[in-house]
Amino acid sequence: MSEAGTLETASTHDLTARTPGARLFSLFGSSFAVGIILPLVTAIAYEGAFRAGLVQGRLLPPPSKILATLWELARSGELLTHVIATLARVLAGFGLGALIGMWLGALTGASRAARRLLDPTLQALRAIPSLAWVPLFILWLGIFESSKVALIAVGVFFPVYLGVMAAIANVDRKIVEVGRAFRLSRLSLVRRVLLPAILPDFIIAIRSGLGLGFMFVVAAEIMGASEGLGYLLVDGQQLGKPAQILAAIIAFAVLGKLGDWLIVIGARPFLSWQDSHSRTQ
């Protein structure tokens, strides 16, 4: 894979004659600038309406107040504590769920026998709304971290499992045959043919897994936590502080987007070969 990397950057250099960094920046810059227009205009308009006295802003505080709350939380170090608590839960649950999902998905994708044995059970479990597990997890694992991590792991598990299984089952037989014709061992067949072939679908599975991880961390923290962004939400509700709720929501949005973006950026060098529609736009 290392030589793949060097050759590949060489080729993109030839084709575009721009450094990857500059290209990334301009791509990010332009799409970001267009994407920010709608939220920015809405925020400014609402702030203006608040300043002019047209709205009270008691239940929906103006952006300035939300930002001030956010800043206050950040300055006191409180925000960091909550962000770290939430991130730790998401990472633990995501790691656990993604790992198990990956292995079971690989197993059921590669072996028909394993699929016939395991998949019906897993699909039946998938039909259970994940939040229904909460009482059981609390009984089994207590009210602290373990039950939260378990809930997040369940949420992450299914998209990763389904994505990996489908990706492996759908690898083009013709491409696998090329590997066989060149006498690759089972291990090199996996490394040189199967893994690169499923990578695009795998990245999508991981991304939807992470998205669900953030969804379930909110559920877990709302149900009982003494720290975490979800705690900020509940706290804001109980004490009637809508600005704090919105500040926590913004923090969630930023974290979720950042996590997704990290996966996309991390995977991009390995996916530049793709012949996809989005590339030509």
Binding site: E3, A4, L7, E8, S11, K174, I175, E177, V178, R180, A181, F182, R183, V193, P196, A197, L199, F270, W273, Q274, D275
Partner: peptide, 24 residues
Amino acid sequence: AAPHPAVGIVFQEPRLLPWLTVAQ
């Protein structure tokens, strides 16, 4: 009895691996 180094095959379709460059 199995794919042999002395025998090469070209299929009806090119079947190039899309994630490798032409040289690779």
